[in-house]
């Protein structure tokens, strides 16, 4: 098992390198000259050739592309993503707190999503084709089909404005998590519980279930065996859900005025604040790579056949 984890981590290294390179290259494809962008962002009144050259010299834009990349990469490894063009502050001082805010939201939402997807998935599978199954499926599918911003607005109207139970927006104590987490979770539970449900139903017809029953094992023990095998399908999906939420809370953060990555990245994109965009893309991409690795490792712990390589 230790060897498998080591191997899997080593494979991740070149992947991370490729991701960082792509991030850097894509931003450099932007049609504007970087020095000009910096000067415009700093609202310099008249941009002269001389000024551009000075900026190039100062920020190293006149060095060969690959040298620029390695400078940037080495700095990134030390969490130094450069200076924001617009706010004239280090990127990390903006990114760090925003990342933590979004991360908290993501972690809590993921736990809620996983817990309820498993719960509803098992409930539906055990009561297949009964009223419970049909009702839950219809309800959860409905919530997934509805756009998140609409649901968010309705929730704010009902729970914050009319009933005055929860804050309308912002990040202020535990209560302010309830609405955004609920809206995010409702969007995903409807997708993921179906995976658990169908995996459980597939496993229900496996021989080991029949043999378990024929051996007189109690139903709850058999259900645990089925769940154990069904979760393997879900692990990959859940692990991928975390970076998806991390990079995709833009809408929710806007609705609930959450001071997170989504809000920050949108304002950076609108003002062409390249170092911030670069850092955002890199963080989300790294999150995908890392969680993909985690899903493989978790799968290997649950499924001995993957560990043995067959």
């Amino acid at each position: 098992m230790g060897i498998y984890i080591m191997k899997r981590m080593l494979i991740t290294l070149p992947l991370l390198l490729a991701v960082s390179f792509l991030t850097f290259v894509l931003i450099s494809f932007s049609p504007m000259e970087p020095a000009e962008v910096v000067l415009r962002a700093q609202e310099v009144p008249v941009i002269t050739e001389e000024l551009i050259e000075q900026t190039n010299e100062k920020l190293g834009f006149n060095k060969p592309f690959i040298v620029q990349y390695f400078h940037w990469l080495i700095a990134c490894l030390q969490l130094d993503f450069g200076q924001s063009y617009v706010k004239n502050a280090p990127v990390w001082s903006l990114m760090g707190p925003a990342f933590m805010n979004t991360f908290k939201l993501t972690v809590i939402s993921s736990f809620v999503i996983i817990a309820f997807s498993v719960l509803f998935g098992v409930l539906c599978a055990l009561n297949e084709r009964t009223a419970v199954d049909r009702l839950l499926r219809a309800l959860l599918f409905g919530f997934t089909a509805v756009p998140a911003y609409w649901l968010g607005a309705i929730f704010i109207f009902v729970f914050s404005v009319k009933l005055d139970l929860l804050p309308t927006s912002g990040m202020d104590g535990a209560k302010s998590y309830i609405l955004p987490v609920t809206v995010i979770a409702l969007g995903y539970i409807g997708l993921y519980f179906r995976n658990i449900r169908s995996a459980m139903l597939n496993n229900l017809n496996e021989d080991y279930v029949l043999y378990g029953r024929a051996s007189g094992l109690p139903e709850n023990k058999i259900t645990m065996h089925i769940l154990r095998n069904s979760l393997q399908v879900a692990i990959s999906i859940f692990c991928m859900a975390i970076p998806i939420i991390l990079g995709g809370t833009v809408v929710i953060e806007n609705v609930f005025a959450w001071p997170g990555l989504g809000s920050l990245s949108i304002s950076a994109i609108l003002s062409r604040d390249f170092p911030v965009i670069q850092a955002y893309v890199l963080i989300v991409a790294v999150a995908f790579v890392v969680f993909n690795m985690m899903s493989d490792i978790l799968n290997a712990t649950f499924n001995p056949r993957i560990r043995d390589g067959n």
């Binding site: 496996e206 021989d207 080991y208 029949l210 043999y211 378990g212 024929a214 051996s215 065996h225 154990r228 095998n229 393997q232 649950f302 499924n303 001995p304 056949r305």
Partner: peptide, 13 residues
């Protein structure tokens, strides 16, 4: 009961 296929009769995980 003894099943036909031993390979699938036990929980694979």
């Amino acid at each position: 009961m003894i099943l036909q296929n031993g390979m699938t009769a036990f929980d694979p995980s």
